[in-house]
Amino acid sequence: MRRSALLVLAALTVADWSAGPARAGEIPPAERRSGFDTMSPDIQAMQRDGMANPALLWLEDGADLWAKAPAPDRPACAGCHGEAGLAMRGVATRYPAWDAASAAPIDLQGRVNACRRRHQGAEPYPYESRELLGLTAYVAAQSAGLPITVPDDSRLGAARAAGRALFTQRMGQLGLSCAACHDDHPGRRLGAAAIPQGHPTGYPLYRLEWQGVGSVQRRLRNCMTGMRAEPFGYGAPEFVALERYLMDRAAPLAIETPAVRP
């Protein structure tokens, strides 16, 4: 008896379940749906209505920062790029992108901060600061309505693979993965919450639960905490890889920034 109990315990302990693949696999492009579609009509109206969307306050901050020089002898964003509506149109559809200077993929907020350091002689904005969210949302909003694309850049291959691995990996005390809900069970409910397919079409976005605008990394950290996992830190390469994979997985849905979600 002792012996069999030991064997069973040993088997339970050393067996590696984490390698198991997601059951249903990726959602085909024609079946991809934004979380917008399953929201209540009043929240949909809040996103659609320019005057009611609370994220517009952040967007206005972003527009001001775009035009304002960080120091008298340093260019504003507009000083190099010109009008955001022209220069930034379509940019968010292809981010995260390869950053040659750091030889790594970079997300949109990382690009904003890299520009500040490299070209504006300014300190990077802290993650989730009103400035970084506002400026990133303002840049991303110039792509609103345009389809997310899958960049044809082989240098992004490693990040894509790493992002996919993170998406399907069970983690945390509850042993859940992103794929277990968002690939296998979209449309079902977790408690009161409808499970979306999990496409980052509208970030930075206003979440009623947050009473504010937040980044996709904030949302991913929320989900990881729900799994009782240790979330990655803001700016972690894991988050950039995961976002790259999520954007591939979301194409060709349209950018919705600034979106509103429950």
């Binding site: 302990t13 997601a22 069970r170 983690m171 945390g172 296998d184 069970h185 009782r228």
Partner: peptide, 25 residues
């Protein structure tokens, strides 16, 4: 069912990145 979404309530096998408050429990 190796692919079940149901958490294992009394097993630590195969867990990764468990949050500090929940670790080893």
């Amino acid at each position: 069912n190796p692919d079940t979404i149901m958490p294992s309530y009394y097993s630590l096998a195969g867990t990764t990145r468990v949050g500090a408050a929940w670790r080893d429990r």
